[in-house]
């Protein structure tokens, strides 16, 4: 019965779900661009964490938010200079 209902009234077509999804995406962008130095802070933290594992070129590191049709992605380009040598087991 529920299957039939879902077929007749597909969930995706409910305009409130479209509204929610559009709102979610736009707020990811708004919140990221509104908070001062948001991406700079994130970049600093990422460099700190990744540097524990490998030597990276922090001047060449770039971090951006990009939006596709249905999602927002965090895209990071982090050039690696050298992998650190580890004693063995983690």
């Amino acid at each position: 019965m529920l299957d039939l209902l879902n077929k007749v009234f597909p969930k995706d077509n409910r305009s409130k779900d479209i509204a929610k999804e559009r709102l979610r995406l736009v707020l990811v962008h708004d919140r990221a661009s509104v908070a001062p130095q948001f991406l700079e802070h994130l970049k600093g933290d990422l460099i700190e964490v990744i540097s524990r594992y490998m030597e990276i070129d922090d001047k060449g590191t770039e971090i951006n938010l990009t939006s596709g049709e249905e999602s927002v992605a965090l895209v990071a380009s982090i050039p690696i200079k050298r992998m650190k040598r580890h004693a063995g087991t983690w």
């Binding site: 409130k16 779900d17 709102l23």
Partner: peptide, 16 residues
């Protein structure tokens, strides 16, 4: 309209 799924409901907005 909320009932029909054509308007965001309260929980949607509170969550967002």
């Amino acid at each position: 309209m909320v009932k029909k799924g054509d308007m965001m409901d309260i929980d949607d907005m509170l969550e967002i």
